[in-house]
Structures are given as C-alpha cells and as structure tokens.
Design a protein around this nucleic acid. Structure first.
Length: 565
RNA sequence: GCACUCGUAGCUCAGCUGGAUAGAGCACCCGCCUUCUAAGCGGGCGGUCUCAGGUUCGAAUCCUGACGGGUGUACCA
C-alpha cells in the first residue's frame, strides 16, 4: 500500500473530471503540519500552459475532489497550493491492517529483479581498516533493503587476493618455515615484516617475484600456501563481519582470482571488436571525448584492476543475470567506474538494459578534517575501532544503571556497534564526514540509541500491560493522526531509499518517527488511569506498530534492538 | 592545467527530481520527574543557505562564472 499513490489517484481523478490533461500527478509530503499531510503544487506549474490563474485551476480541482475516501479535507493556500488532509478513519484502519501484517503493510515489488551488490572488498594482504567500514555497512544495508523489498540480491565480496604482494607474503611464510596458523594472528605485523624483508633484501625480493609467477602458473605447493593464507585472512574478516552484524558470508566471496582465466578473453574480445589500441606499449580502450584511456593490459603483458572489473561486470550481467549492479566503493574511484561502465556498455559486455551504478561514498575524517588515522599516522584497524566502541558503550551503561556483567556485555555490543553503524549510515553517503566518538556515543539526537531507547520504552509498556494487543485504532488527536500517517509512509521511504541507494533516508525517517512518537507518548497516556479502554487499546496498537517499524528499519540497517535498556 | 565533488546556525549535519516563514542535534539560557524508562519532553537564543549573475510566477535546490576546501588525473587496487 503506497499512501502517496493513493493520494495521487484522488487528484488524478479530480483532474479528469475537470477535463484538464495533466502530466503525471505527484503530491509531496506537506512541509509543515499546518499545511496538512500532503500537498499538491501542480496548479502553479500548469498556470502558464493553461493561461489561467493558478488559484482558479486549484479551485477547479477542489470542486471535483472526492473527499469521501482517503482525502477528507483540502484547502487552497498561497499562490495555488492545494493542501490535503487524510481521513482519520482511513488512516486508523490502514494502521491496524499494517500492524497485523508481517511486512508492516510494505508490499513486495511486483517486478523484482536480480541485483548484484558489490561491497566490502577487503585486501587479503592486510587487516581491514576504517576505510572498509563504509563500503561494508552501506553495501549491507542496500542489500538488506532490496531484499526486503523483494529483489533477488546477490552479494559479492570482491576480495583482493591476487597480486604481487602475495608472492612476498608466501616467500616470508616459507622463510619462517611455518604453516602460517601461528604467525598470521597479527596480519598487519606479518605484512609489515614481510614488506621490510622485501625492501631490504634483494634475494628475498627476487624469491617473492618467483612465487608470484609460480602462483599464477598454478604451482600446487604455492597455491596451497596461498590458499591457506587466504583462509586465515578471510577468517579475520569474518570476525569483523560478525562483530559488525553484517550478513556477508563465505558464499558471497568472489575473489579477484576468480576472474583470472577470463582476463585474456576480455582483452581478446575487445581486440576482436577493434576497440583496442596500443599506446606506449599498453593495450588501451580510448574514448572519443576523453583523453585518458582505460588500460586493459600493461606493457609487460600483465592485467589490471580495470581488466578484472570488466570480467566481473560481464560475469555479473551475463552469468548471474543481474539487471542492476551496484558498486559500493569510495567516491575517489568515480572516474574508474565511469570509464569501465562505458567500456562495458559499448563493447556489449553488459546489455543496455542493465543498470550500472557506482554507489559512491565520502571519506571518514578526523576532528581536524584530515583523513582518519592513528596518532602515529597509521590506518586505524576496523576491529580496534569496533572494540573501542563496545568499551565506550560499556562505560556509558555502567554509569547509568546497574546491570549484571553478562547484561552489560550484551547491551554494550548492541549499543556500541549500533552507534558506529548508525552514525555512518545517517550521513548522506556522498559527503565526507567527521568521525567523532563523543558525538557518536553521546546518544542524543539522531542516534541509534535514541531509537533503541524508544523501542525499549515501548516494550516496557507491554510488559506492564501483559494483555494481548489487539483492536482497532481510533484517532483522537492531531499527534495520533500524524503518527499514523508517518507510520504508513514507511513503504514510500524504503522505496525511495532503495532507488537512491541512500541509507540516510531511512535514518531520517526513523528519527522523525521516533521524535513524533516521543511527543505522542508524552502527551497521550496509555496505561494511566482514566484512559478509555478503546483508546488504550488503540494507543497500544499504535505503540506496537511504532516499535515494529523501528525494529524493521534498524534491521535493514543491520542494527539490533533491545527490550530493556 | 583539466575533470569531479563539497561550501547551509558557534560546532556536527538534514533538506537538493524547484514550492509557502530554510530544519535537527550539540553548545548556551529557561521550564517539566510522588503517575507508562528524564539516555525523555516543551520553550528560548542562533542563518544575507560562500559570492555574483541567469532561468522561473517561485531558487539553498537548476544553469554560468568567481572564491575557498577535498579528490582524481594511463600501465597500483
């Protein structure tokens, strides 16, 4: 059920009766409560075309407006706005229905598609660092969201497991005569040590290069070591995913190496089509309108990032059958994606009707507005950041109330990790943002804890009430009305967020919803004495619907709720 | 140099498919706990939406230019 569409229809019908052939009708949410629930601004736009005063057009529509259904009141305001109020009874009934529905009244897409979401993509040679946070959680949210709306989502974790650094790592592993299980515990250190050897010892470096050739040539011994290394490394990533409550699994891994055999094919196919041109020894695809080409094969015959990405695009569109392929990758790679998308489309690697998008995001900055680093200038390990979030949450919880040790432990994880994720997801993904512990864990304003707190308060009402929550909704005041409308807008918010791949549209909505509920709850007693039974039941239903919406919304963001806080 | 991107309250950010008097949170000031969790709620203070033009009935939003910040600019990923 899409509220907005229903309102659009009412206006549409009025237009038909008026005899005006209007373009697609699109009402928008009212900018202020005193302007009703929705507003229609089309009269002004039509005024020139029809050579009529916009207020005149508006009043023509008003005369033909059906006020017996979802819209119950309409007014002309200002230069020709039509403000629309929705019918209390209709809202009430829809809320009741939605609450009894598992999907909260959110319909599944009538024409679902296959979507590939490429996200996280850690490098197997190193620990995951804060730079991986955004890709991982934005990608996961987008996947959850599309899945909830009915699309078939194929998560793809394009891990970096192929390249010169692996020769170096294996050489070092060999040299130390270990099987890796011990020394790889601290991957970061292992990488650093190996790098040091590589830089200092020429013989070691040569050996490392030999290993690269061996791996790529399929040498069994080297491949075994390499595989072992990847397994351990992936295990580290999974530890992070687990902490982050991200739903990526090993099945979603489709590593760079997977496309290895297809790379010569990619180049050959491009050559066959006559798209390749040699330039300074490298094989390139040039564009008519751009100076810088895409290089698909180096002068020494090696392949590049772009080659692998083209192979991956082809695989995803043709073998996996995706109709939308979303890359959740740092904005700095915008140029790269713009170019390979162009090549993929013009070479026919990807059919015309497949939507390719770079879901770009900005960089995480420190307080001074510089890229987020440790004090000594290194990258901040993601696992350390998450652990710190939990520690800080723990401190905040202890300060507030006395819980048992296990309870503190459990809550701190949910709250701390939720805070990190929410703080990130609530920012418009394209802008850079300043990472700030104090703000993140201050738990005021638009934060995960505010949502979790509201959820817990509602659960507390139910614990006190004990009875079954069942009944119809009666709207008795303006806050109830607004809460009802807000709850019913959930679907259109999700649709739009999915379309724009914008998690912050969900957080903004949840924040507005919770703020509204807090006010409603403050002013409208539920279980207190003197509340009419029917009103009590109705308010319980609204409270329950609010809780369920918060839970569902946070679930899409990959954040848990707690029953008690 | 060229390209992309951002510039909104003291701070951190929404809003950007054009709509009415530009919104939050923090900070600061004031009020609300013997009654459903005060990690809450209400009120106040705070803005020439970087600047200059343009398009439009209407511009924070679209276009052009300037200034300022960030990023990218062929054999890394």
């Amino acid at each position: 059920m899409k509220l907005k569409e229903e309102v659009n229809k009412v206006i549409q019908t009025a237009f038909q009766k008026t005899g005006i052939d209007a373009q697609p009708i699109n009402v928008s949410e009212a900018t202020k409560p005193e302007f009703g629930d929705y507003q229609f601004n089309g009269a002004m736009a039509l005024s020139k075309e029809l050579r009529k005063n916009p207020r005149e057009i508006a009043s023509g529509i008003l005369e033909n407006l059906d006020l017996s259904g979802i819209v119950s009141k309409a007014e002309i305001a200002g230069p020709g706005f039509i403000n629309l109020w929705l019918n209390d009874n209709v809202i009430a009934e829809k809320c009741r229905e939605a609450r009894e529905d598992k999907r909260l009244g959110v319909s599944k897409k009538s024409a679902p598609i296959k979507v590939v979401v490429d996200y996280s993509g850690p490098n197997m040679a190193k620990q995951m660092h804060v730079g991986h946070l955004r890709s991982t959680i934005i990608g996961d949210t987008l996947s959850n969201l599309l899945e909830f709306l009915g699309d078939e989502v194929i998560r793809q974790n394009h891990i970096g497991d192929w390249g010169t650094q692996f020769g170096m790592l294996i050489a070092y592993l060999e040299e130390r005569g270990e099987d890796g299980s011990g020394s790889l515990k601290d991957l970061e250190q292992f990488y650093k040590d190996a790098k040091k050897r590589f830089d200092e010892d020429e013989a070691f470096a040569d050996k490392a290069r030999e290993y690269v050739v061996k791996i790529q040539g399929g040498d069994e011994h080297c491949l075994n070591l390499w595989q072992k290394f990847i397994d351990i490394s992936l295990g580290h990533c999974e530890e992070v995913y687990d902490k982050l409550c991200v739903r990526l699994t090993r099945e979603d891994v489709k590593a760079e190496s997977f496309y290895n055999e297809d790379l010569p094919e990619v180049v050959a196919d491009l050559a066959e089509e006559g798209r390749l041109k040699e330039s300074e020894g490298a094989q390139c695809v040039f564009f008519e309108d751009e100076e810088i080409p895409v290089i698909v094969q180096k002068g020494d015959g090696g392949y590049l990032y772009a080659t692998t990405d083209l192979a991956a695009l082809r695989y995803r569109a043709n073998i996996l059958g995706a109709k939308r392929i979303s890359y959740v990758v740092d904005a700095r790679q915008g140029e790269h994606f713009r170019q390979i998308f162009k090549v993929a489309k013009m070479s026919g690697f990807v059919p015309e009707d497949v939507k390719l998008e770079h879901v770009a995001f900005g960089t995480m900055m420190d307080k001074g507005g510089k890229p987020f680093k440790t004090r000594d200038g290194g990258t901040v390990k993601l696992i350390d950041l998450l652990d710190e979030a939990v520690v800080k949450a723990k401190a905040a919880i202890k300060e507030k109330d006395d819980y048992s040790e296990e309870e503190v432990e459990r809550l701190a994880k949910i709250i701390g990790i939720g805070a990190v994720k929410y703080a990130d997801l609530s920012i418009n993904r394209e802008s850079n943002y300043i990472f700030n512990w104090d703000k993140m864990l201050s738990f005021e304003g638009n934060t995960s804890l505010y949502m979790q707190y509201a959820y817990a308060r509602i659960q507390s009402i139910f614990r006190r009430y004990r009875g079954e929550i069942k009944g119809s909704v009666v709207i008795t005041d303006v806050l109830e009305h607004r809460l009802g409308v807000m709850l019913l807008r959930f679907e259109e918010v999700l649709d739009r967020a999915a379309e724009d791949a914008a998690p912050n549209q969900i957080t903004t909505y949840l924040y507005e919803l919770v703020t509204l509920f807090m006010r409603f709850y403050e002013q409208n007693p539920i279980l207190k004495e003197g509340v009419d039974e029917e009103v009590k039941l109705s308010r319980l239903v609204l409270a329950d619907m609010t809780a369920k919406t918060i839970k569902q919304g946070l679930d899409i963001l990959g954040i848990d709720v707690v029953d008690k806080l």
